[in-house]
Simulated assay, not measured.
Amino acid sequence: MDPLHDWRLTAEPHYRPQGNEVALYEAAYAARLPVMLKGPTGCGKSRFVEFMAWRLGRPLVTVACNEDMTAADLVGRFLLEPTGTRWQDGPLTLAARHGGICYLDEVVEARQDTTVVIHALTDHRRCLPLDKKGELVRAHPDFQLVISYNPGYQSLMKDLKPSTRQRFTAFDFDYPPPALEAQVLVAESGLDAALAARLVEIAQAARRLKGHGLAEGISTRLLVNAGQLIAHGVAPREAARMAMVCPITDDADIRESLDHAIDAVLG
């Protein structure tokens, strides 16, 4: 039985390259270098990793990091069963042992004493000590570690230590250029090109408010949500408000400004 069967992608994820990131990632994987993806929420970081895992034919073990996550959640723990105790590999150990790509999404949300367990996997050693089990897992030749985070949310309390950062190669991601983002929206939601372009125009207006009342702009993900609502019969202006404005702010003045932008662009 394939221990990574559930983590294998069975269909090609839709991804539109913005530049030469596909070739650069392939080079990083060929060298088995760990990769760090930085960029705003919903700009395509996770989709890119999925696409590259599919393209390389590797299973993708994804972990959504959070502040309650412990090292045991990553590497594994002993489970108590009626017949005794049994060790269960965590997702990081599973990927390292059997040759998957392990993706730690929003890694800065995890405590620094948790993320330090990745250090031995991200240098020349390529190994993972399982202290509780007394085992040293040497990474499978096909294993790679990928992490991501949103620099816009980092703080002194939530940032990667320099000793962690300098173990990775890195990509800076951003929202696609308007024409490419409209193409993504058409492909993901089935909207016609003209309406997709108008929704992107609204998103561009909202992104200009980042730092001026908005913590984060309208993401490509939210654009796709709006497009899918429209495809299911929701009026464009209602879909834009529901999917693109209400999720990102509760401020009445900001909402009014974005509502004006929706009315001006969609008529």
Rank of each mutant, 00 (worst) to 15 (best):
T62P: 07
H119A: 10
L121Y: 00
L79F: 14
P40M: 00
N66T: 11
I101F: 04
P17Q: 07
P82K: 07
A30P: 11
V117F: 10
D68R: 15
W87D: 00
W7F: 15
G90C: 02
K38G: 07
I101G: 09
V35C: 04
Q18I: 10
I118H: 00
V107F: 02
N66F: 10
A31S: 09
L24T: 15
L121F: 04
D6N: 15
Q18E: 11
F48P: 03
W7M: 09
A95C: 09
R58M: 06
K45H: 05
R58Y: 04
M52R: 01
A23S: 15
R16Y: 14
R32V: 09
F78G: 12
A27C: 12
Y25I: 10
I101P: 09
V75W: 12
H119Y: 10
G100K: 04
R126Y: 05
A95T: 09
R16E: 15
E26L: 11
G99E: 10
G19R: 13
L56D: 01
A31C: 12
G90R: 01
R97P: 08
T115D: 05
A120R: 14
A120K: 14
V75Q: 13
P129R: 00
D105L: 06
G84Q: 04
A64M: 10
T85Q: 14
D68N: 15
R111F: 00
H119T: 11
R126H: 01
R86W: 08
V108G: 08
A23K: 14
P129A: 05
P40R: 01
W87E: 00
Y25K: 06
L121I: 03
L104I: 09
R111H: 11
A53R: 00
A23D: 15
D89H: 13
T62N: 05
E12Q: 14
C43K: 01
C65Y: 05
G42E: 02
L121Q: 03
L128F: 03
D105P: 02
T10A: 03
P59Y: 04
C102I: 06
P91F: 10
D68K: 15
P59Q: 00
C43N: 02
G76A: 06
G90W: 03
P17S: 03
R86K: 12
G100N: 08
L56A: 07
R97F: 07
G42H: 03
M69S: 02
E26W: 08
L9T: 01
